[in-house]
C-alpha cells in the first residue's frame, strides 16, 4: 500500500499517544481500529496499551475504551457485548484487547470461557512476547532462548512458546487468525473477514517491541517481516477450529532462523546449539502446520 492510498478519515489512533517509537503494538491497534471502525468499543486490559491509551481526559483512540483488571478481559468483553445488545446497540463491534500476558497466562481462563460460550466479539492479542508494561518479564509467549528480566543473562527462557492458536482451534471458534505489522493488508483482510462473522473471533498479532527485544525502532517492520519469512511466525487462518489455511506462504528455505534471532539483542546469548534447538522446533511446528493446512482442504 502506498502512503497516498491511506484513507486518513478512517484513522482512529490519534498522534501523541504514549507508545515508544517503533512500537509494534501501537501499529497493530492503528491497523485494527481502522479496519474495524468506526462503530467500535474496546475492552482493554492491563498491558502496555493501558499506558499507550493515555491519561484521561486524554485518549489515544477515537472510540470508547473500557479498562478492566488484568485477568478479566475475556469476561468483561462478554458483559459489554451483551449489555450493548440489551441496550439496543447490537451493531457495535466489540474488541477485547490484551497483551500476551493477558491472553496466554493470567487471562487464559476468561478467554477460554468466553471462546467456549462463543461470545460475539473479537479478541485481539498483541503479542510482544513478554510482560513489557512491567519491564520485560518472561511470559508463556516468550520464545525459547530469549533473555528477560526474570531470566537475565546468563539465563534464558527455557521452555517453548505456548501454542495459543492450537488452544483456540481446540475451542472450535468460528474464526482465528495470525497477523503481524509488516503485512498490514493481510491483517486488514483478516479483521474485515472477522467483522462479518458472528461468534467468537481471535486474532493473534505478533508485535515487535524495540526496547524489549533489543532492536532499533526503525527496524520494527523488518523484524516483523523476518518473523514471517523465517517461518517463526506463520500467517494463517482457522475456520471452526478445523479448516486451516495459509494466507502467505514464504519460501522459508532461503532464510535461516539465525537471521531473525541475530537481529535482536534478547537472543544475544544464543549459541549455535541453542539456535539449532529453536530452528528444529520452528521446523517441526511448520511441518505440523502444513499437515493441518493440507488435510483441511
Amino acid at each position: 500500500m502506498k502512503i497516498e492510498e491511506l484513507n486518513r478519515e478512517s484513522e482512529m489512533l490519534y498522534s501523541g499517544h504514549n507508545a515508544c517509537p517503533g512500537c509494534g503494538a501501537a501499529l497493530a491497534v492503528r491497523y485494527l481500529t481502522r479496519a474495524l471502525g468506526p462503530d467500535l468499543a474496546i475492552v482493554l486490559t492491563a498491558s502496555c496499551w493501558s499506558i499507550i491509551s493515555g491519561m484521561p481526559p486524554l485518549t489515544a483512540l477515537k472510540c470508547p475504551i473500557l479498562h478492566c483488571p488484568f485477568p478479566s478481559a475475556g469476561s468483561v468483553g462478554s458483559g459489554v457485548k451483551r449489555g450493548l445488545v440489551a441496550k439496543g446497540k447490537p451493531d457495535t463491534t466489540v474488541v477485547v484487547l490484551a497483551g500476551d500476558g493477558g491472553t496466554f497466562d493470567i487471562g487464559l481462563q476468561a478467554l477460554s470461557g468466553a471462546a467456549q460460550r462463543n461470545e460475539d466479539y473479537i479478541f485481539v492479542c498483541y503479542d510482544n512476547e513478554a510482560y513489557m508494561n512491567t519491564g520485560m518479564q518472561t511470559s508463556s509467549a516468550t520464545p525459547f532462548g530469549a533473555r528477560t528480566a526474570t531470566a537475565p543473562y546468563p539465563l534464558f527462557k527455557a521452555g517453548q512458546k505456548k501454542d495459543i492458536m492450537q488452544i483456540m482451534a481446540a475451542h472450535s471458534i468460528p474464526y482465528a487468525a495470525t497477523a503481524t505489522v509488516a503485512f498490514p493488508e493481510d491483517m486488514e483482510e483478516k479483521l474485515k473477514k472477522a467483522k462479518k462473522i458472528s461468534g467468537f473471533r481471535f486474532i493473534h498479532i505478533l508485535s515487535p517491541c524495540p526496547p524489549g527485544w533489543g532492536t532499533e525502532s526503525a527496524d520494527t517492520i523488518q523484524i516483523s517481516r523476518l518473523a514471517v519469512n523465517t517461518g517463526f511466525f506463520p500467517l494463517y487462518e482457522i475456520r471452526d477450529g478445523v479448516s486451516w489455511e495459509m494466507t502467505l506462504k514464504p519460501d522459508r528455505s532461503r532464510i535461516p532462523l539465525k537471521e531473525y534471532l541475530g537481529a535482536q539483542r534478547r537472543f544475544k546469548q544464543m549459541d549455535d546449539r541453542r539456535i539449532e534447538i529453536l530452528q528444529e522446533e520452528v521446523d517441526h511446528d511448520w511441518e505440523c502446520l502444513m499437515e493441518k493446512v493440507n488435510t483441511a482442504d
Partner: peptide, 21 residues
C-alpha cells in the same frame, strides 16, 4: 450467562453495567 468462575461472573456484570444494563 453460565460463566467459568465467580471472577468471570462479576467481570461480566461489570462489562454489562458499563453499558447501562
Amino acid at each position: 450467562v453460565s460463566v467459568e468462575s465467580e471472577y468471570a461472573a462479576l467481570a461480566c456484570c461489570y462489562g454489562a453495567a458499563a453499558t447501562g444494563a
